[in-house]
Amino acid sequence: MTVDAAVGPTSARPLPVLDEADTAPFWRACGEHRLTYQRHRDTGEVVFYPRGQHDPALETCDSAGLGTVYTFTVVRQHGHPFFRAHAPYTVAYVDLDEGFRLLTEIDAEPGTLRVGQRVELHWEDHDGTSVPIFRPAG
C-alpha cells in the first residue's frame, strides 16, 4: 500500500477503474445517470455488484434510486488529500427498493442521519463517469 506522491492537496475524488471487466458496464451506465443492478430472469434473484455480462439469465435493470439507510458512519479522519479536505462526510450502506445494497456517500449534515432513513439518488459528474451519492429524501 503506497500513498501516491503525485496526489496534490487539491486532488479530486478518487474514481473507480473504468475498464475493470465486471464493473465497467455499471460505471458506464452511471455516466448516463442510470443506477443499474442485475436480476436473474428465472428466479428474480437480485445480483449486485454486477457479475460479468456473459450469463444470458442475468438481465440489467435500472433502479429508481430510492432506498433506506441500513447503516452509516461519519468519517472524520482520512489520509487521502481529497477525503481529508472533504471530512467529515457520511458513508452508508443503502438498501435500494429493488433489493440491492450499495455502499455510497450520503450528502447530509454530519450527525443528522439515522438508520432507516429514506434517501434518494443524486449524481456527481466526473470525467468518464458519474458517482452515485444520496441525500435524505423529500
Partner: peptide
C-alpha cells in the same frame, strides 16, 4: 470488482 464499486466513497 467489489472494491472497484467502493473507491469513490473514502471508507
Amino acid at each position: 470488482p467489489g472494491l472497484n464499486m467502493e473507491i469513490p466513497y473514502g471508507l
